[in-house]
Write a protein that binds this DNA or RNA. Structure first.
Lengths: 98, 98
DNA sequence: GCGATCACTTTCCGGCGTGGCAAGTTTTCC
DNA sequence: GGAAAACTTGCCACGCCGGAAAGTGATCGC
């Protein structure tokens, strides 16, 4: 029971990152503007959240060009998928006991 | 989609409180030692977490006696149940989109 | 060519939640 | 009488969160 709590990943638990991971888990990839608009966050905020996910090894980033024309694409990693799955299962284990 | 994020209740989202609410949602009541042991938290920590839930109107407290012999019992409120349900549904909406 | 605009990133920073420790209270058990 | 359970509260340090602002690079419209 309580081990479930330990299975909650703090990096993923933060609402915005949870949503971001969910989107990336279901899509092959997503770019910056898409995520920003879907999550309704600031550029700065999203940039930081994604950096956090990247540092955790949960997503990879691909940048094509810079500035206006550029595209920054995020993709979930195998590790990220596993971590997300694990987190969601822990959530269900906790909340599902109802 | 993003409205789901808004439906996440910060009071409930904190892991320990999420687990506490889940326990209270499935049991008619739970006392202090029980919760403390299940959540594996400190007395002080649990006391504060439960105070937070109480202040939010999500649980009610009943105290019989003081000190060693006393029993502090927590019970989820109708409002708490609704908030919990809503929170869990928001979680599922977010993570289930995968 | 120039200004507006988009796409990000980084720094600064105030604010808030988290959680341990320690101390104090009441009551019961041995 | 002393240990120990059951809580509560204050102090406080630490880290996350997230907005504002400023900066960079590149394209679009006129």
């Amino acid at each position: 029971m309580t081990t479930d709590l330990a299975n909650l990943d703090p990096v993923i638990h933060a609402p915005k990152r949870l949503a971001a991971m969910a989107l990336l888990a279901s899509a092959s990839s997503a770019d910056f503007p898409f995520l920003r608009d879907h999550l309704e966050v600031t550029d700065s905020d999203l940039s930081k959240q994604m950096a956090t996910l990247e540092n955790a090894g949960y997503v990879t980033v691909t940048k094509l060009g810079h500035g206006r024309g550029g595209v920054t694409t995020y993709r979930i990693t195998r590790q990220g998928k596993a971590a997300f799955k694990r987190h969601v299962e822990a959530l269900r284990a906790i909340t599902g006991s109802a």
